[in-house]
Each structure stands twice: as C-alpha cells, then as structure tokens.
C-alpha cells in the first residue's frame, strides 16, 4: 500500500456573514496516492487549500468527507503519526526553550530515548548547522535558524513519511540547498516526501511528481514538465509566469 493515500477528501467551512450562513469549500474531492520513496510537490497559489489538506493529513483539522490513510492507518489515529515527520509553515517553537530541548522532547514524543536519542540529536544539530547555538533560547533565533530547526525535528526519528508545508520558506540560498540535500538524503533512505510550495523552481529541483491545487480542487497531477509544459531552459521568472497562467486559466 502506498504510504499516503487520500480519497475524496473535502473540507467545508461554514461562516456567518450578516446573519446569513455561508459555506466555503476549502478542499473538494481531492484524491491522491503517493508511491513509496517519491518526492511529491503539492503546488498551488495562496489560499488554494494546500495547508488545509496538510492539516487534515496531520489530524489538526477534521475532514468533512473523505479518507486519509497514512502508512496504512487512518489519519485520526495517533499511532499513524509515529511514522511521520511534520514541518508546518512558519513553525512556532516555544521561545523559552533551546534547540537541544526541542529536539530531545521531539525524540521522546516519537518514542526515542537514551543514548540513541542523544546521538541522533547531536548528529542533526550538526547537520543543520545549529550546533553552536544548541543551548541558546529559540527567542534569539533568526527565521532561517528556526526553519532549519524545523527540518531537524521533522527528520529526527527517521520517519517513513515527511510532510512539509513550505519547507524552503525563509531560507537563504545555502539554507535552501541544505534542506534540498536533506530531503534527497531522506528519499535515499526510503522516506516518502510530501511537501507543499508555491515556488516552482524549488519544486522542480526536487520532485518526481507534482499535484496542482487551485480553489480546493486538484486540477493537475503528474511529472512537473508535463503539468507545466516546461522546457529545459526555463528561468525561474518564466516558471512563475507559467504557473500564474495556469492558475488563472483554472481559477
């Protein structure tokens, strides 16, 4: 079974405007299956439903209809999350804690302990270049440092599935390169990666397959070249333009 299977997923929000109830479908009829070992890019403009989908996968939001199977288990079961490494968009770590404490806590929550945990924490802090600041409070961290810490905590327990929401945001070029390398290394270790982004050039460098979501609907899925009609020498600017064109067509 594929590590991530989404079937007919939908999320409806009901709002009140001037006393009238109004229903908004943030996600409608989403069906995706990500094969083992793939890096899947979930693309779409702001407000398309990417984050909502990811929140449903992580059990943070309850779907209105549909199913999500993570590593064969329903997403509502906490044990499904034992195999997931998750990084939300703009992660908020407790500012009073240190990087070391956050990673140690993450490991304990994932069932790690003792020497194994200690070694893994040390290795990751070195990998994301936070070793020198491991005992500093997160309140002193820059956005890039927080993002790197986020990647570290997501990959700490060597998960079978990585779910990342805008993992490259806030990073400088060296940071982006580091994260890209980490994701590729994860894939080589047999991890499946699902990440969302709205920057086409980042996705192109990493993904085997992409899905394009617009207005809550999955409008296209497949290899990125096919989905966006790309040629080998597209510049990032022209990629963005291609992206905008497709979105406006579909919107």
């Amino acid at each position: 079974m594929d590590p991530l299977v989404i079937e007919n997923l939908a999320k409806r929000y009901v709002t009140r405007q001037r006393g009238e109830k109004k229903a908004v479908w943030a996600v409608k009829d989403l069906t995706i299956s990500i094969p083992h070992g793939a890096i899947f890019g979930f693309l779409g403009p702001n407000g398309a439903g990417k984050t909502t989908t990811i929140k449903m996968m992580m059990g943070l939001t309850l779907p209105t209809t549909g199913n999500i199977l993570i590593l064969g288990k329903s997403q509502t079961s906490p044990s499904a999350r034992a195999g997931i490494g998750f990084l939300p968009e703009n992660p908020q770590f407790p500012p009073a804690l240190t990087a070391q404490e956050v990673l140690a806590w993450t490991g304990r929550m994932m069932g790690m302990e003792g020497e194994t945990l200690k070694k893994r924490v040390d290795a990751l802090l070195a990998r994301v270049r936070l070793n020198e600041v491991r005992h500093e409070r997160i309140a002193t961290f820059s956005k890039g440092m927080i993002q790197r810490l986020g990647i570290a905590q997501a990959t700490l327990a060597k998960p079978a599935l990585l779910i990342l929401d805008e993992p490259l945001s806030g990073l400088d070029p060296p940071g982006r390169q580091m994260v890209t390398e980490i994701l590729k290394e994860a894939r080589e270790e047999g991890c499946t990666v699902f990440f969302s982004s709205h920057i086409l050039s980042d996705v192109r460098a990493l993904c085997d397959e992409v899905g394009l979501i617009v207005g809550g609907h999955l409008v296209k899925k497949g290899e990125i070249e096919a989905v966006f009609n790309l040629s080998g020498d597209d510049s990032p600017a022209s990629l963005d333009q291609r992206f905008s064109e497709i979105i406006h067509t579909r919107a």
């Binding site: 943070l60 034992a82 997931i84 939300p88 908020q92 994932m110």
Partner: peptide, 21 residues
Amino acid sequence: GKDMETRSIYLILSKPINRAQ
C-alpha cells in the same frame, strides 16, 4: 492561549499523541 491561537500547537499535535494526552 499561544497553543490555541498560533501554530505552536501544530508541533505538538502532529506527534503521535492524542488530544487527551
């Protein structure tokens, strides 16, 4: 309050714990 209003709770609830825990 911070948990409920900001994304800080994501990093907790995304772990293999249920809401009661």
